[in-house]
Design a protein around this nucleic acid. Structure first.
Lengths: 99, 99
DNA sequence: CACTTACGTAAGTTACGACTTACGGATGGC
DNA sequence: GCCATCCGTAAGTCGTAACTTACGTAAGTG
């Protein structure tokens, strides 16, 4: 969750939606240096949001659906309970009006 | 998205899942001061994740399903494309093996 | 109408994270 | 084997956000 907090990291993440890319490719369209991108990718990798593999001298990164799935599951857990709690609160409000 | 980056803010968020709570109630179980909680709630409110209303002298906060829904929609947009890109990459890998 | 309760905001400090430059290691080409 | 390419990591700087204490304000209580 906190892995997607930084705007630059989100930009990298969004760029990877189009498909796997090398570090240099990712850094090319961003306003930060290549080492900075490397550091961001490390965070994303440790968060399970991307996976990497070596291809010759370069390192290709791509999104990890499992990581996204975990995030979705986490969010859904809130979603259900939040809606229930919200509805309950709304009904409680209605009762007060009815008094 | 960045609103849920801070651990303390996530703790507040999770506590609100059980239902609406006042600022003092929220601060009670947290290792930070009450003003700190107020500041966090301001961030969450501006992010559209919670709504607040005055009840007597206290201010009750609760989750905003609309905000959660927006987050879910944002995430789902990635989910679909990420899965497609991942599948495509996997197939491309399979072809190489087949060579 | 004093007093208490509950909260938001201002000001200031501090810790953390994002970034840069510099360097070293691994792979490919000729 | 030698040079070029591509990348990760280390060290250091700097901005920002998270936290504290102090204060002011609005609403209940007797």
């Amino acid at each position: 969750m906190s892995a997607l907090a930084d705007p630059t990291r989100r930009a990298i993440f969004e760029r990877l939606v189009d498909g796997p890319k090398a570090v240099g490719q990712l850094a090319e369209g961003l306003p930060v240096s290549r080492p900075a991108v490397s550091q961001h990718l490390k965070v994303l990798r440790e968060a399970g949001l991307v996976v990497d593999r070596a291809v010759g001298t370069r390192r290709v990164y791509q999104l990890n659906p499992a990581g996204l799935g975990a995030l979705r599951a986490w969010l859904d857990r809130f979603w259900d309970q939040a809606l229930a709690a919200f509805t309950a609160a709304a009904e409680s409000e209605g009762k007060h009006e009815h008094d």
